[in-house]
């Protein structure tokens, strides 16, 4: 049996998730023994952009018409499609201000120039085509990637923690950023897997891994309000990563309420 054919692709993004694959320095050569990477523009030349793929990894948001066509062509030739990173799964930072028309953003950055830009509202790749697996993280965690790849190659499903960052934070015995420092920490609503990296370094979680399954908003609002932190403050913080999904989940309402009161939006 020949090795499974693999493709690794980047849409619009920082290439961080692809870099995390290259950052598996100890495992990279062993990965190459088990799969045949035939299309990886970031790390290969002479790429084969037509062969059907057993597994394809896609990173980034769809932010151009070209991205969309590329994504559809990847889907069409892949048996198993994996979304890598928060951008691909939830929209990530590029989707942070989707309420603003691209035209406004373009003018702000390029003034009158750059009319030729191929640009469209940044949306997660998972909005456009079905994906078999989604691996969030900004960037993805190497150990999770390796576990996922291994599971796919064995024909199984990987087991990932389905708990919030707080769970890992507590196991590391950090002092809570909310309870002890009255900071806005997104840990209680964000999917674990990062080892609570930020709170363990004395910085509140920014929610870079996107929401945990069924986040408990009511309990969170109470937890923050009890400490004099307004829900709008946490909304502002959570707006950075995975904004589209938080918005769908009710933050938009809170924002509108704040705007009606004349606050900063």
């Amino acid at each position: 049996m020949s090795a499974p054919k693999v493709g690794i692709f980047g849409l619009t993004g920082c290439a961080g998730d692809q870099l995390q694959i290259l950052n598996c320095e100890d495992e990279l050569l062993r990965i190459a023994e088990r799969v045949e990477i035939v299309d990886w523009v970031m790390a290969r030349s002479q790429n084969d952009s037509n062969t059907p793929l057993d597994v394809a990894f896609v990173e980034g948001v769809v932010a151009t018409e070209r991205d969309l066509a590329y994504l559809k062509s990847i889907r069409a030739r892949s048996r198993t499609l994996v979304a890598l990173g928060t951008c691909a799964v939830w929209g990530g930072l590029p989707a942070m201000r989707n309420e603003l028309p691209r035209e406004v953003l373009r003018r702000e950055v390029y003034a009158g120039g750059a009319e030729f830009l191929d640009t469209r509202e940044a949306r997660p790749a998972t909005d456009f085509v079905p994906f078999e697996f989604r691996l969030p993280g900004c960037p993805i965690e190497r150990h999770e990637f390796l576990r996922l790849l291994n599971a796919i190659l064995c024909g199984g499903k990987p087991e990932f923690l389905n708990v919030p960052v707080c769970w890992e934070c507590k196991t590391r015995e950090n002092l809570c950023r909310v309870v002890h420092y009255k900071e806005v920490c997104c840990g209680a609503m964000t999917r674990a897997g990062c080892g609570a990296r930020c709170p363990s370094h004395g910085v509140p979680c920014a929610g870079c891994r996107g929401p945990v399954e069924e986040p408990n908003y009511d309990a969170n609002i109470t937890m923050f309000q009890d400490r004099g932190i307004s829900w709008v403050e946490i909304a502002r913080k959570m707006e950075a990563f995975s904004a589209p999904v938080w918005m769908k989940l009710g933050l938009e309402r809170e924002h509108a309420r704040e705007r009606a009161r004349g606050g900063r939006s």
């Binding site: 849409l11 619009t12 993004g13 980034g60 948001v61 932010a63 151009t64 070209r66 991205d67 930072l93 590029p94 942070m96 201000r97 603003l100 691209r102 406004v104 953003l105 373009r106 702000e108 950055v109 750059a114 830009l117 191929d118 640009t119 940044a122 920014a206 870079c208 502002r236 913080k237 950075a240 900063r264 939006s265």
Partner: peptide
């Protein structure tokens, strides 16, 4: 054909603490 993310514009209205991240 790099897609634009408009980072400069995304920063508007953010708290200084959040800029680096």
């Amino acid at each position: 054909y790099e897609g634009s993310r408009y980072y400069e514009a995304l920063l508007r209205g953010k708290h200084v603490d959040d800029v680096q991240g």
